[in-house]
């Protein structure tokens, strides 16, 4: 029970944000209208994805220094969880885009292109792992690629969109988040949602790790 508090907390927080996110008061803004509620789902899911990618790159770096097989398997699992979280992230984003920008997907926005490229890079990370048979060489080479991919992902989705024109808030002269969730009612839902989704992704990572340990034991 001692280690389970965060699982319960994540479920409570996500349920609270799902329900209160739909019912709670939101500011009336042009174009955004009621879609502003997507802030509670789209943004926290991407934060959880980035958090998992961060965990993955941390364990890859740790593996390069420690050469412990467990570190590499945590890095792999975290990247997998991150990719899983990117799917609802893209779907909620596509709905938001449809009802504010009028299209499901656009190639005009550097952030969308950056995310697409980032996801392809992580898929290639899995391909690279599958193409190397020898265990130690696989772990080392894929850790190196993972670090490279993470730095590029951060560049493509956090840095470049701020330098060029983007449709996303906070980029290219558009108003930043602060303007929307200045409303203190929204903060009461948004911050719990971020914490809830990050804890939830941690729970899934925990399950994946336990599964790979069981597989390991089973193989021996």
């Amino acid at each position: 029970m001692k280690n389970n508090w965060y699982k319960i907390l994540s479920v409570i927080l996500i349920l609270y944000t799902l329900i209160w996110g739909m019912l709670g008061p939101v500011p009336r803004l042009d174009i955004l209208n009621e879609t502003i509620r997507n802030l509670y789902y789209h943004v926290p899911i991407w934060f959880a994805m980035l958090f998992q990618m961060g965990v993955s790159v941390f364990y890859s770096a740790k593996y390069l220094n420690s050469n412990k097989k467990e570190d590499d398997s945590v890095a792999f699992n975290a990247a997998l969880v991150g990719i899983l979280f990117s799917i609802p992230g893209i779907i909620t984003g596509a709905f938001w885009a449809r009802f504010t920008w009028g299209t499901w997907w656009t190639f005009e926005d550097p952030k969308l292109n950056g995310v697409a490229i980032g996801i392809i890079m992580y898929l290639i990370y899995f391909v690279l792992r599958a193409s190397i048979i020898q265990e130690t060489s696989k772990a080392r080479v894929s850790s190196v690629f993972n670090i490279f991919a993470f730095v590029m992902l951060i560049l493509f989705i956090m840095v470049f969109p701020r330098l060029t024109d983007s449709l996303h808030p906070g980029n290219g002269g558009n108003p930043a988040f602060g303007k929307y969730d200045l409303d203190s009612n929204m903060r009461l839902v948004f911050y719990p949602a971020v914490i809830g989704w990050i804890l939830f992704s941690g729970w899934i990572l925990n399950l994946f790790n336990r599964l790979s340990i069981l597989k390991e034991v089973n193989n021996e």
């Binding site: 950056g114 490229i117 980032g118 890079m121 690279l128």
Partner: peptide, 13 residues
Amino acid sequence: TLVSILSFPVLIP
């Protein structure tokens, strides 16, 4: 073949 697969996503931007 792996070289081109690995480097394409970074080369595109």
